[in-house]
Every structure is written in C-alpha cells, then in structure tokens.
Design a protein around this nucleic acid. Structure first.
Lengths: 191, 191, 191, 191
DNA sequence: GATGAATGAGCGTTCATTCAT
DNA sequence: CATGAATGAACGCTCATTCAT
C-alpha cells in the first residue's frame, strides 16, 4: 500500500465514521481499524484529531467545488447561474450523504465558526463562486439590498435544511421538488 | 439557598456551558462547579445528563412559547401572523443568545432529530402555532404548494442562520434588518 | 411511630435488601426509603453501615438461638441432641431465607472472619450450645478425635451448603431429605 | 516487558487484591497500580471487570484441574479415587491460598451461582471428575442414595470450610489431619 | 429527635496521544 | 516508516455520611 493509499484510507474511514456517529462517536482507534492502519499511523499524516477534521473538510470542499463548476457559465443570467449552483449543490448532497453529514457536523462546531469567519472576511483564497454570484447580484441590483451574510443565509439555510430532511427521510426529494425549492430560495433573495 | 435556587443554578450553569462549549465540552463536574454545587447534587434534580439536556430544552421551549404568542391574533391575515411570529422569534433569539445556542446544539444532535420527528408527525400535543400557520397558508393557497417540511425549512433555515450570524457577530441586526429578513422569508414561501 | 418501631423498621429493611442484593447492592438511602425513614435517621441508631451490619447479625443470632433451644434436652443422648439442633437449624434457614442469605453474606466477609475468631477463641459469652455439644462428644469419645474447628466444619459446612442449594432451588428439601442429610453429617463426626 | 508479562502482572495483582479484599475492595485503579500498569491497560486484556473476574476463575480452574487429575486412576476403587481427589484438592488450596480465597469469593457471588447451575445441569463440557465419581458411587450403591447436589455439599462443604480455617490460621493442617478430614467426609457420603 | 438535601471522594470505563520496537 | 500496546487524565455517575432546619 503506497503512502497516498494509506492517507486516503484514513480519510475515507474518518469520513464514514464521523458522518455516521459524530466527532465524539468516532475514536481514533476505530478510524484506524476501519482504515486497516495502525493507530499511530494516523499521526504521521495529521498532527492531531482536530487537524485531521479540518483537513477532511478542506478535501470535501475541494471535491465538491469542481462539481459545482461543471457546466457553470459565468456569462449566463444571474438567475440561471443561481439555479445551476443550487441544484448542483443539492444533488451533490443527496448523492454524497456522508459528505453532507460531515459538513453539517463541521459547521455546527467551533471549527465551522472559524471557517465561516475566514470565508466571510475574505481571508481564504477567493475561490468562492457563490460569493461572486451574490456580489454580482447586489451590484446589478437584481438581488435584495441586504448584507452578503444574510443573502447567504437566505439561500443556504433552506438548502441545507431540505437536504438534511431528505437524508433523514423526513421527505423524499425528486428533481421537481428540488427545482421548486431552489425557485423559492430565489424568490427570497431576488428583488 | 432554597431548593429551587439550587436547581436554578444548575440549569443556568448547564445552559451557559453547553451553549458555549457544546454537550461534550460541558462535563457534569464543570457544570457543578459553575453552579457552586457538589457534583452529586445535579443527580438529585436530573436522572442523568441526557435527561438534564432534554429537560433543559423543554424549559427553554416553555419560556419561549408565551413570548411568541404574546400579541398574536389568529384572525389577522396570514402575512401579518407570519411576520409577528418570525419577528418575535428573532428578537427572542437575539435577547437570549444562550437559549439560541443551546437550541442549535440540541437540534444538531440525536435528541433534536427525534424531537423534530415527533413535531412533524404531530405526535406531540398540537401547541404548534407555526404548524397551524403553514397548514392554514397551504389550504388557503396563499403559500406555495410544497410539503410542510420544506415550508418549515424555507422559513426557519434563514431565521436560524441569521440569528446565529448575529450572535457570532458576523452581522449586527437591527429592527430594519430583521424586518427585511422576515420579508425575504415570506417571499420564499408565499405564492 | 415510637423509637423502637423506627429501629425495627430499619433493621427489617436492611435485612431484606442486604439478603436480596448483598451489602453493596443495598445503599443506605434505599434502606431508609424501604424503612420509611429519613436517611440521616439510620445514623441515630447505628454509628455507620458496618456497625449496622454487625448488629443486624447479632440480632439474627439472638432470634435464632431460642428456636434452636426450644425442646432441647441436655440430658438426651448426644446423637439425639445433634439431630435436634441440626434439624432445627435447617428448618430455621428454610423458613427464614432472608436470615439465611444475610448470614451467608456476613460469614463471607471480613465481619464474618472476625466473628468466627471471637467465637472459637471463646471471647464471646459461652452461649453456644453447639460448642458444648461437640466438647461433650469429644470428652465422651463419641465423636472423632479432631480439633473442634474441624468438627464444626464437618457439621455446618454441609448444613449451610444444603440450605443454600434449597433456597437457590437446586434441590427441594423435605423432612425426609433433611433427616438423611443430618444423618450423613452425624456419620461424618461420629467415631 | 513482553505482552504476556503485562497480562500476567494484571492477573496476579487482581488475584491478590480480590483474594484479600473481595471484589468490591479491589478497584481497577488499585489492581492497575499493584500490577505497575496504567489503568486503561487492563481493558486491553479484559473487556470489563466482570469479564476479568470470570476469566480469572476459569484460569484458576484450568490450573487446578490437571493437579487433581495427576495420578488419578479411574480403575481404582471409589474410596481411593475419592481420597485422591479430596486430598489433592486440599493440598492445592493450602499451597495456593490466593486461589482458594478467590474461588470462595467467586462462589459467593452471582457469578458463582450461575457457574454452579451450569455445572449441575451438565451444561458445561463433562470434564468434571467429581460428578463422574459421585454418579459412579450412586449407581454402584456405594454411596448414600441422596441427590447428587447433597452429596456434593457433604463432601465439599467441609473441605472448603476446613481449608478456609487453615488459611485463616484457625487451625494448622498437616497430612494426618487432612487424611482424617477426608476420611470423615467419606463417612458422610458412603452407605 | 428526625429529616433529606447536599456533598465529594471514589468507582468503572474511554480514548487521544505517545513511543519502543 | 509503520505499528499498536501502553498510558492516565477525564468522563458520567454512586453513595456513605453530614448537618442546617
């Protein structure tokens, strides 16, 4: 097993167990076993559990990003771009429930708060299509004149909530329902 | 110190610490110390930590509920009722940030999921103004024809997200901003 | 409730709970509740749990003693006296399983060892019919010339074991079986 | 220190402390300290305290069994076989007082009762020489026609009691005294 | 005297992290 | 490099005992 294989196995195992049982229900020893790796080996790749979780989130983000961008045309109307991104995001969540559950846990934790702060303050590299989209919508006066943060919340709040309810089987989403949910989010932010 | 004082101290300490550090970051010993109480004393009032958390949530709900209902007139138009409830909710969250953070933690945990299931299935006593409001809106065709769950998510997703961002100081809400946020939520759910 | 009633209630409750659950399965609070008495009240009658247990044993012994003596005629032959005492003892155990279970627990604990030491060394008052019986048997050369302790063990070892097996339902004793068991014990000690 | 050394140290420490102070007087932390081992280390070898105790008993049994069997000839007369086994048992107890005290504690506990039930019902594999011996004695009408359980009690009751009294220094056994005690037990069970 | 709420040391157990092999 | 046995601080919880009322 090559070095990268080991790291990948650890990441996969950690994602599975954390998604299923939460941060506190996924001991390092259990992650190591699931990854078929020695417990100490994890610490060759990650300084400690916190670092592992943070990097895990970053990897999920990176995996997610190209999927959102695929077929995304910056020259389309704002509405179409918003629909494209939101629909892609919902599909991604539904098809990758482990990723979704992990992201949820992550946001609802001190890590998530720090991450959000970095994002909003623009400290992180500007790879954020959504931010560009909303800023574009604001400057063209297509979207409501609200702080960027609130526009985010109006769009992502429902998207995350609906995805969670689907994954928890409170509803069963299909393409029609997804489209109409995104439409409703658009109604919330558009002027 | 009277008996009720002691219980109150425990409840206050638990709320503070759980709001600040989460369930796992608030050991019973720390709660006891913050409440100026022996570790064993907590167990005179709550069977175990899980029960304490559940009961704490119930108490917050009971504290919150009359505030939402105050000034609520069921004979007003749907839009006004929606505004009243959402505005009251946001004010409650902003003025009781500990309650808000606790509720957030609670919903993002197995307790919360079970609670949500009960609510949606109507197992719990029908004291839910919001559910009535949305069902009313659906039957009068004022709101979009979407599953109840999704209507909930379209309204509460943003409300919770915005309240959190205020409490975490990502934005500073005022009455105008609150009104415009609630307005945007209304746009999301209304036909 | 008079003072003695309270003490009696405590003693009764302690006996029941210790017999059923052992020393460590019978917390003072539980004993107090069963006795319908405040937890602190127990400490008015007994210095601490150890003292309570020791006194409880003494009371059982005192209750038991007259039963053994009833109908006991010191002028009968040794064999008859042995039969009388052993049969009475077994009946007592069978009819008072709580007492038996308590005695068992007691003997199998540091208390029991100390008690046995006192008994054998004759430190305790000489109210012991059995001791007299065996010493009589030895001096008349009816019994095997073995140390007193071993004669005790040859008689009581089986008696206790058989009583326990009856109480635990491994066997069902009747008068015939009791008689034949005592007979066998007599065979063990007689010359 | 090799892996097995560590386990052995734990077993030794647990045996010593439980023999001396009983199950409840031997906390895991104390066992760990006596074994010069971290508290958590014990749990690498035993799932929990109950399992540790059960396994400890099993190990003692396995250590004891071959000693009883050594020099045991199934074709000898019943009386000789009984003497052989009982004498070997007493020597084993006297030379391994820790084992003896542990076994005593074990039998006088819920574990012991369950174990005895299994033994009597023959649920456990039939490696029980004593059971065979008594059944043989019954069918050949050498022993008294009593339930198997009572025969056990008549033999082991005194053996255990005498061994305990020796270990507690109430008597000092020698070969002669052992022989005469076993003889007395034989008198109890033989016709 | 009687109470029972309060205490806190002590229990069995877990798990992130280390380090000898 | 990789391992996994070892660690021990920290956890949730219990209960004998005390003491203000």
């Amino acid at each position: 097993m090559a070095k990268l294989d080991k790291r990948d196995e650890i990441v996969r195992a950690a994602l599975e167990l954390i998604a299923e049982h939460g941060f506190h229900g996924a001991p390092m020893a259990m992650i190591a076993e699931r990854a078929s790796v020695g417990a100490g080996t994890i610490y060759r790749y990650f300084e400690n559990k916190d670092v592992m979780i943070t990097e895990l989130f970053r990897e999920i983000e990176e995996r997610n990003y190209p999927i959102l961008k695929a077929g995304y045309a910056p020259d389309q109307p704002l509405r179409e771009r918003f629909f494209h991104l939101c629909t892609a995001l919902m599909h991604y969540f539904i098809e990758n429930p482990l990723d979704f559950r992990f992201i949820e846990q992550f946001f609802n934790s001190p890590y998530g708060v720090a991450h959000r702060r970095d994002k909003l303050l623009g400290t992180k590299e500007g790879c954020d299509v959504f931010k560009e989209l909303f800023e574009d919508g604001l400057s063209r006066q297509v979207m409501k004149d609200l702080p960027l943060v609130i526009l985010f919340d109006l769009a992502f709040g429902p998207i995350l909530a609906v995805a969670r309810d689907h994954i928890l089987s409170f509803i069963v989403l299909d393409d029609v329902l997804i489209a109409r949910t995104v439409e409703a989010c658009w109604d919330a932010i558009k002027r």
